[in-house]
Design a protein around this nucleic acid. Structure first.
Length: 321
RNA sequence: GCGGCUAUGGUGAAGUGGUUAACACAAGCGGCUGUGAACCGCUCAUUCGUGGGUUCAAGUCCCAUUAGCCGCC
């Protein structure tokens, strides 16, 4: 599908199969037989998204209950780096705290300081020099905290910088704002990564502001639930109008569109056959990657803004999803 | 021919006289943003086989009738 990089997750891999197994296999590339670029997230987001499994967050780190075995796990910023070194991705992330939205300025300020201390602690123990380590900017919607967090991380000299704490339930305009107030404080000669973003409007908004990297579960999660991305907007393949539609999803170079009809995908999804979710995921991921390919080309030809505007217009939704 | 049992939505069914007929599945619609894949939300029987009756009030009680199932001759 020509993905520039793929993402794996420290928390999930540590619980199963365990980073030692991956290390023993010769690292994540060898383990999953993929020699392209791989990034691991630190698990900081899982501390936020899996609140039910979280025991407590302290200065030292976070303790978790393993939902599979009931075992307790303790993630410190140092341990998270060590796990990621064993996993062996090309780019790894600092362990950060991702506070929920909304969040009081008092808590956010304390949280940002802790995220900065964790970033420093993690960087100190990072010895695998063929791995790039990124710092993660938090600070919510507070301009001064975002600036502070970004500047402090930059002074620590990371290999790249991530914008975290976005798309966690805040309003649309707040999301744009969070990128707006962070980007100016990150060096343009190092990668700037907007974490967890995948809707068209935010991808384009991020690109325009200078973001270099994105990752998102949205295309695959939508696919598994029957929502397919097309140039003319989203369609729900579960709808009965597709039961005898023997055309591909759309004009597209993906494996799914080259080989299967909407009627067949409709049938697979109705039956909850896992192949359905996989074929739909292939289309949605390729859809977004193709958009990114076109965006890069448009940038080189200096017509990115008109390109983005046209894509959003064709998609027929301001949000772009 | 006689006796017994059962009839509630597309389906499986709750409901033993008292406001808008439970729940599940199916169906339909929407959601999902650094992944706990197979999740969440909403909609979906003015009506209980049919026809009478009792009662202030009937899916619930009575009578008749129809259909299905079981048993006996």
């Amino acid at each position: 599908m020509n993905a520039g990089i793929i993402l794996a997750n420290t928390y999930h891999l540590e619980l199963r199969p365990g980073s030692e197994i991956i290390q023993k296999a010769g690292g994540i590339h060898s383990f999953m037989n993929y020699d392209g670029p791989i990034l691991t997230d630190s698990g900081g987001y899982q501390v936020f998204s899996l609140t039910k499994l979280r025991d407590k967050i302290t200065e030292e780190g976070v303790s978790f209950k393993d939902p599979l075995s009931g075992d307790k796990h303790f993630f410190s910023p140092e341990e998270v780096i060590k796990i990621q070194e064993r996993i062996g991705a090309d780019i790894i992330m600092s362990f950060d705290e991702c506070p929920p939205f909304p969040c009081s300025k008092e808590y956010m300020a304390k949280s940002v300081d802790r995220t900065l201390r964790w970033a420093k602690r993690g960087k100190k123990v990072h010895t695998k020099k063929d791995q790039a380590l990124f710092g993660i900017v938090q600070g919510g919607d507070y301009p001064d905290l975002r600036q502070y967090c970004a500047s402090e991380l930059v002074s620590m000299d990371f290999d790249g910088y991530s914008i975290g704490g976005t798309a966690i339930g805040e309003p649309r305009l707040t999301e744009y704002h969070e990128v707006e107030i962070t980007i100016p404080f990150l060096p343009y000669n190092k990668p700037r990564y907007l974490m967890g973003i995948g809707s068209l409007d935010m991808l384009f908004d991020g690109i325009r502001k200078g973001v270099d990297m994105f990752d998102c579960v949205l295309p695959t999660r939508l696919a598994r639930h029957g929502s397919l991305l097309t140039r003319k907007g989203r369609i729900n393949i579960l709808k009965s109008v597709y039961k005898d539609d023997f055309n591909p999803i759309e004009k597209c170079d993906c494996y799914t569109c080259k080989n299967y009809t909407k009627a067949y995908l409709h049938h697979l999804m109705k039956c909850e056959e896992s192949l359905g979710g996989r074929l739909c995921s292939i289309h949605n991921v390729r859809f977004l990657i193709r958009i990114m390919e076109e965006a890069r080309k448009a940038i080189k030809e200096d017509k990115f803004l008109s390109y983005a505007a046209k894509i959003l217009q064709d998609f027929g939704s301001e949000r772009g999803f």
